[in-house]
Design a protein around this nucleic acid. Structure first.
Length: 300
RNA sequence: GGUACCGUGGCCGAGGGGCUAGGCAGAGGUCUGCAAAACCUCCUACAGCAGUUCGAAUCUGCUCGGUACCU
């Protein structure tokens, strides 16, 4: 009987040191890495999303890094499919696989699956977003209240994204989005072990500041400049890009932009912590290679 | 030295005798299809001292601090 297949998940906030730990762990188990990062998957984004260096990428095979374009639609479901397919492939030859990244929702989609909701035609999506831009939140709320009162009752009715999703699902299927939510966790044909990396807040903040300065030295400004024509794409609503766009558009000076990148990255890291803390399956550790390897090794 | 104006929470900023503006930052949180996004909750201040008043951050005086102009 073949050994039980195992997925090692390494989560944690940005700048905590996931990349190097994941590489060390993957090397130790002679396996590969799937990145669970909603921004590093774009080939056009490099410096600003702290993509692993060419040197790092050469040490261990990585997946979902620079595999997509900012012009494509990439969602949690995209990642789920991608990672499921990849892991099957990798498990043909390996017993262990490392997934690391800071996008909690993507990791959750992979581990627990997402309910099947039919694809929404882009015409419907566009129509809704146009209407929302013209008529505002009030309009969205009214529509939902009319069409899907059950969702209205329990939903976050001040969050336009949630409302638009509920509305587009209703308009394209004629059914409430709630009727698709089974809340059933997918059964995966492998074991999942989760570790989350953490550092004292002051230290994490120092890492963030240092890393932003390094990004600037590495030429972030030029990277962002080349993306100016696409600044409205969703993929570019990203810390490190938004702020430099503002600078390039003459709305702030460079010093201020850098300051804001640091601040917004701290806020982002905080939200990531909130997400990971919620899942009790995570075992929290310091980003120390030998400790983390020992932890996973002891689970065999 | 004189005259005038100003002093509101970590920062910005509105108000102006009784009704806790608001924003940012910060803290905590939400989350099944844009998630590095979006959204929610919390954070009761009016420079100091005296006075007027039933009641002062709001009015008066003094003190301190700042700004502008005059000498």
């Amino acid at each position: 009987m073949p050994a039980k297949k195992r997925i090692i998940i390494i989560g944690g906030p940005t700048a905590v040191g996931k990349t190097s730990i994941a590489i060390a762990v993957a090397k130790h188990f002679h396996t590969e890495i799937i990145s669970a990062d909603s921004r590093q998957c774009f080939k056009e984004l490099n410096i600003g999303v702290a993509r692993p260096s060419a040197e790092e990428l050469s040490q261990v095979k990585h997946h979902f890094i620079a595999t997509h374009s900012i012009h494509q639609k990439v969602t949690a479901a995209t990642f789920e499919q991608y990672a499921l397919t990849k892991s099957e492939e990798i498990f043909l030859e390996r017993d262990v696989l490392v997934i690391t990244g800071g996008t909690g929702l993507y990791i959750k989609a992979f581990c627990e699956g997402m309910d099947e909701i039919p694809e929404v035609p882009s015409v419907i999506r566009q129509e809704i977003s146009t209407q929302y831009n013209q008529n505002g939140l009030q309009w969205l709320q009214n529509e939902i209240q009319k069409i899907d009162p059950a969702f209205y009752e329990r939903g976050e009715i001040k969050n336009p994204h949630r409302l638009m999703r509920a509305l587009e699902v209703y308009k394209s299927t004629g059914k409430s989005i709630l009727s698709f939510r089974t809340a059933k966790k997918a059964i995966r044909p492998f074991e999942i072990v989760k570790v989350a990396l953490e550092l004292p807040k002051e230290e994490l903040h120092r890492n963030i500041d240092k890393r932003v300065d390094m990004m600037m030295q590495a030429g972030l400004r030029d990277e962002v400049r080349s993306l100016v024509p696409y600044q409205h794409l969703n993929a570019l609503q990203t810390v490190g890009y938004k702020e430099i766009f503002d600078y390039l558009n003459g709305e702030t000076d460079l010093e201020q932009a850098i300051h804001l990148i640091k601040r917004n990255t701290r806020q982002y890291a905080k939200r990531q912590m909130t997400w990971f803390k919620k899942d009790p399956a995570y075992h929290w550790m310091k980003p120390n290679e030998t400790e983390v390897i020992k932890h996973f090794g002891s689970l065999v």
